[in-house]
Design a protein around this nucleic acid. Structure first.
Length: 580
DNA sequence: GCCGTTTTCGGCCCGACTGTTTTCAGTCG
């Protein structure tokens, strides 16, 4: 078995975690070096197992020691240093660090003085009121730790929640607090603003004239189960849903610097601050300022801070510390897409599909009201047992669309279909019949468990069908529920480029598919085109296009490669509508 | 442990909150 990049990264991650205990510091330079190495390995263009120690050392963030450890693991299947640390710090002991409020120092203290080596033993020690007697501890801390253990299942440090559950809560919070008259600006930040698919906690940033009333309103909300912390400018609560929410209040003039800081990622912030230092500046959550005089250089907007650091603005979705700063410096950032750039929706259902929930008439009216230039109605193909359309229904819907075209002369309405990709890449209907549609999306709705080679083959075969314009929700995942099919990404993207088949960027928060890692891989294959679609089954879902737009940004997709940002004429020509 | 347009040694992002300390350590983001 050859060691894959993600496997090596996982081991380095474990090395970092164990080193936190060994060094007695979560932020020791050695720990941070390992953490950097994790990112470096994950961002390698090729297999880590193919690289020599010397080649590994040329990678930024990997030095002699880490290169040696990686080679050792690839060659022998184990890493002596890691084995020794595992021996010294058993898994039960490491578990203790998952308790919020307990870091490496406390773990070592518990072990050395009280012989506590597991969560269970800690519980016993707390019951015996022995933890409070430790130096630096006390009754209150003991009680806090006890409470933290009780809710460990709800929100341990590493618990993450699918974005579809978190985003609506965050939006609600922003609306509620935003209504206070003290609030000048408000935004959710953190991994949610970066649009990660799972979220640890909600971070809200407020610019306000007076922080106190905002803090009061925040901790007094009905959904707050427990106040975890409460300061003048920063508070944390735990909601009924078991989600932690952090609120930070700054003055309006500090808002840009604070947004930057609170949005992260940690790696992005560290890189920006390092860049500031190199320019004789200091960057914190309040401002970018002169290191000597303290004079503020920029603080009001994020853009101003980037500019003062000689960088183009970097959208939040790209701030993961994976090369975006270098790209911003050399001007090679992809051109980011905005919701306003989208001119058509090319994956829309109506009640003609069994699972559609808005009528065709309502859907078209809602699309027209959004000011789109073109739309493809794509009901399910007949192979999707309950939800699909027979040929008779396809013909009947075509008739209904003719009527709607007369009602909405400004809107180009394409008669499409969402086809089902069969076990071996076969499709609903026959090839001749398929060419009668204006637009075909082909999607995987079954056989999720096939081997990677089989999944890749069925996708490639479908892309070779001239009727197919785009592959819908590429891997078929449901975030937090279903992992999606395994595919050979490079082979699939190459086939997409060769056959001219676009890759869908599905806007549904439950899907966010193709995933950003796959989208980003397409950077090196310039002929791949993309379509941002809502896959709406109800008129209320047409607005989801905003999520697809943000997914595209996260995947470093350049706006110019997204075909539904093109004007009607250019798009129709590319799609060969009416010429098949 | 990593790294170098002042450096192969001596740096490495920055600050709020809590609980315990009467000046700070630990944790977190």
């Amino acid at each position: 078995m050859i060691a894959g990049n993600s496997e090596v990264a996982r081991l380095l991650r474990e090395l970092a975690d164990l080193s936190k205990l060994d060094d007695g510091a979560a932020q020791s330079f050695r720990v941070r070096a390992y953490e950097k190495a994790v990112d470096a390995v994950l961002n390698l263009p090729g297999p880590v197992a193919d690289m020599t120690a010397a080649e590994l050392q040329t990678v930024a963030g990997i030095g002699k020691s880490t290169a040696g450890k990686i080679r050792e693991y690839v060659d022998t299947g184990s890493m002596a240093r890691l084995e020794a640390l595992r021996e010294q710090y058993p898994r039960e002991l490491v578990e203790l660090t998952r308790i919020p409020g307990i870091g490496p120092k406390t773990v070592l203290l518990l072990r050395d003085v009280l012989a506590v080596n597991s969560v269970e033993e800690l519980r016993v020690a707390i019951d015996a009121e022995r933890v409070r007697e430790l130096p630096g501890m006390g009754k209150l801390r003991e009680q806090k730790i006890a409470a933290a253990i009780e809710r460990l299942g709800l929100h341990g440090k590493d618990k993450r929640t699918p974005i579809i559950q978190v985003l609506p809560m965050a939006v609600h919070l922003v609306e509620t607090l935003g209504a206070l008259h003290e609030v000048r600006h408000i935004e959710y930040c953190g991994s949610l603003r970066r649009f990660r698919e799972t979220i640890g906690d909600i971070d809200i940033l407020v610019a306000a004239s007076d922080p106190a009333p905002v803090m009061d309103a925040f901790v007094d909300q009905a959904s707050v189960r427990e106040v975890l912390g409460r300061g003048d400018t920063k508070s944390s609560v735990l909601t009924d849903a078991g989600l932690q929410v952090d609120l930070r209040v700054v003055t309006p003039s500090q808002y840009g610097a604070a947004l930057l800081y609170f949005t992260g990622s940690k790696e992005h912030n560290i890189a920006l601050r390092q860049r500031a230092i190199n320019r004789g500046l200091l960057l914190n959550e309040y401002a970018l300022s002169d290191a000597e005089s303290g004079a503020v250089v920029a603080s009001r907007t994020e853009k101003a801070v980037y500019e003062a650091l000689d960088l183009r603005y970097i959208v939040p979705e790209m701030r993961e510390g994976t090369g975006e700063i270098a790209a911003a410096e050399e001007g090679s950032l992809p051109r980011p897409v905005d919701a306003g750039d989208i001119r058509g929706d090319l994956h829309v259902h109506s009640t003609w599909s069994g699972d559609g929930r808005s009528s065709l008439e309502d859907m078209i009216a809602a699309v027209a009201a959004r000011g789109l230039e073109y739309v493809a109605i794509t009901e399910h193909g007949e192979d999707l047992a309950i939800n699909g359309l027979s040929r008779a229904k396809v013909a009947a819907e075509a008739f209904a669309l003719e009527d709607l075209r007369l009602q909405y002369p400004e809107l180009t309405i394409l008669h499409g279909s969402e086809l089902n990709i069969g076990r071996d890449g076969e499709l609903d209907y026959d090839d001749e019949y398929l060419l009668g549609f204006d637009w075909c999306v082909a999607s995987v709705h079954s056989h999720f468990d096939l081997a990677m080679a089989d999944q890749t083959a069925r996708l490639v075969r479908v892309m070779e069908n001239p009727a197919v314009n785009v592959i819908g929700h590429l891997i078929g995942r449901r975030i937090g529920k279903r992992p999606g099919i395994e595919i050979d990404v490079d082979v699939v993207l190459e086939a997409a480029a060769v056959t001219g088949t676009a890759i869908e960027i599905n806007s549904h928060l439950d899907r966010l598919d193709a995933p950003p890692e796959i989208l980003r891989r397409a950077r090196d294959i310039p002929d791949v085109r993309f379509v941002i679609s809502t896959d709406a089954h109800h008129t209320s879902e047409l607005g989801n296009v905003e999520w697809g737009v943000r997914l595209a940004r996260r995947g470093w997709v350049d706006k110019r490669r997204i075909v539904n940002t093109w004007n009607r004429e250019r798009f129709l020509k590319w799609a060969r509508v009416g010429r098949r």
